[in-house]
Write a protein that binds this DNA or RNA. Structure first.
Length: 197
DNA sequence: GTAAAGATCCACT
DNA sequence: GTGGATCTTTACT
């Protein structure tokens, strides 16, 4: 298994959102390496995308981590209770990012289960949503600004797997984005059980 | 200082 | 299918 180099992240969000499907997200917790395959993503095109936090190049305190070099992690809190994981890509001025919506756990399912105290014991409910996977992998604001190309706590590797078929569709829950909401910037692996609704 | 909304999830009818 | 949780961040007075 090979870690993806810094240069990998210097492509557009649209290209990488699709390319990252099938790659493995590694999260180190207590000397244990949790492996999850990325199965669903969305592209956010930064300053030119009405759905993006960086639309029109807005800078606020929270958004500083979007204006980082490719491979940086951008975690933000939503609805006061949850977190969402983004990977900053391309040139840092454009503030593009890939939003990780769902992953498929490959090992240590018991650990993920412990991290997410909910009634459902179904495996799919562990990571089939952007905030679910953050809970299961303990991804929070402390990871903000970390770079996947150099960190040991969280990074991406490839095992050579390539999805058979990829579905392109509209992004979810971004009605506020008006004319940008219909762009086909959501990607997922067809037939995978862990796709969010 | 105050108010409003949100790249979601869960429980319940 | 629907509503409530819950609080950070942002925008505006």
């Amino acid at each position: 298994m090979k870690r993806l180099p810094k240069s990998y992240y210097h492509q557009t969000a649209i290209k990488l959102a699709e390319e990252m499907l099938g790659k493995i997200l590694v999260r180190k917790l207590n000397k244990t390496y949790l492996h999850c395959r990325i199965v669903e993503t969305e592209a956010y095109m930064g300053t030119v995308d009405k759905a993006s936090h960086a639309y029109k190049g807005k800078h606020t305190k929270r958004k500083m981590n979007l204006y980082q070099p490719g491979g940086s992690v951008y975690v933000y809190s939503i609805y006061g209770i949850y977190y969402c994981l983004n990977i900053v890509v391309n040139d840092q001025k454009s503030a593009e990012s890939v939003f990780i919506r769902a992953v498929e756990p490959l090992n240590h399912l018991d650990t993920l289960q412990q991290n997410r105290p909910v009634k459902s014991k179904k495996t799919v409910d562990l990571t089939n949503g952007p905030s679910k996977l953050c809970q299961a992998l303990i991804i929070d604001k402390s990871l903000n600004g970390i770079n996947l190309a150099t960190s040991d706590d969280i990074f991406l590797v490839s095992d050579g797997y390539h999805p058979d078929r990829i579905v392109k569709t509209q992004r979810i829950n971004i009605d506020y984005a008006k004319e940008d909401k219909d762009n086909l910037w959501r990607f997922y692996i067809k037939g995978n059980d862990f796709i969010s609704k």
